[in-house]
Design a protein around this nucleic acid. Structure first.
Lengths: 187, 187
DNA sequence: CATAGATTTCAGAAAATTCTGAAATCACGG
DNA sequence: CCGTGATTTCAGAATTTTCTGAAATCTATG
């Protein structure tokens, strides 16, 4: 590996974190490298930069494409494929959320649905099913909320984030106003 | 493994998903089993139910405790430790969010901070640092939002979730009201 | 349609992780 | 402070994942 120190530290860190994030070291490193690179890189650039085998890079890029985390770019007068990451970090966040949901949540949701359809054959199963229903309910709330906010344009999403817990104050204010209006109408 | 079919399916699913969630099969299975069990279980119950070695269960429980995902319970007149999961699913969600943040986000945040302190030695490093700054900015926004909402009581949190994207309408309404008040004052 | 370069596939090597059984440690009642 | 049962530790076995190099496949062009 032969990279500027700053870049190298970043790349190595992503490699180490890879396993915690559900990707392997090479995939993490490739992503990190593309993320900070000022221009699209081809597979051989990556081999050169990271010092891993060509085939490993090929597989890594393939996985990153499955995650929608890298983009294919064509450079004029060069037959080789070149790769970058989307440069809007919000876009990256969206993609990441979507993919993790797809891989980590959706399968469980569908198993839960299936198990909740079945008729329990004992008290123990009845209890288990009640617990599964609780889990299912929570996950469903979370995913519908997610489906909802993911449609927001970035600007609105950012505004919402910035608001943070202050939203509740807004909520209280709303409740008060609504209460007032109702009161008036009913008097 | 000898479990009621419903429970078994659930447990097996958690085992399979384990690797995607950053835990191993046994840990996933132990958690699932405790989650649906109507009473706290001791290590031997788990050995019996899952058909894995005693030592593996010991290690699994230890990891789940590190995650704050299981609770130690004492049963009168029984020397053995017994284990359960918290029964409020919202509580579980909070713990999960906290632990994943600690493991998957915080280390990166601190590496980024460190790298952003350094002085770039080349144009390439300067660009890399700018990209890191973008990433850092986004993560910081997300984590401060998270720190904010995690303090909300469950009821308020649920209300917020239920509101979903409709918050923006509330936001618009607020802007209008504020605008009105300002307009009045300035006229 | 032959060829050269680019890319992917895949079987097996290497590395990492998970799991086990035996031994060590702990903790408590007698 | 001994003995019994519960629990943990840990070295190595088993399994899984990751990585490599060689061969196969693809693709654009002359």
């Amino acid at each position: 590996m032969n990279l500027p120190p700053l870049v190298q530290s970043f790349v190595l860190h992503f490699g180490e974190m890879g396993s915690r994030w559900g990707i392997n070291r090479t995939v993490g490193q490739i992503y990190a490298l593309l993320y900070v690179s000022p221009r699209p890189l081809c597979a051989d650039d990556i081999v050169e930069a990271l010092g891993v085998s060509r085939s490993n890079v090929s597989m890594g890029l393939r996985e990153l494409q499955a995650w929608n985390l890298v983009l294919l770019r064509h450079i004029p007068d060069d037959r080789r494929d070149h790769f970058t990451t989307p440069d809007d970090v919000w876009q990256i966040l969206r993609v990441l959320a979507e993919e993790r949901k797809k891989r980590e949540v959706d399968p469980t949701l569908s198993v839960l649905r299936e198990l909740l359809m079945q008729t329990p054959g004992s008290e123990e199963e009845r209890h288990a099913q009640a617990r599964m229903a609780e889990m299912h309910g929570l996950i469903e709330r979370l995913t519908t909320w997610y489906e909802d906010v993911k449609r927001l344009e970035t600007e609105r999403l950012a505004a919402l984030l910035a608001l943070g817990a202050k939203v509740t104050r807004l909520l209280e204010a709303k409740d008060k106003v609504v209460g007032l209006v109702r009161g008036k109408r009913e008097s």
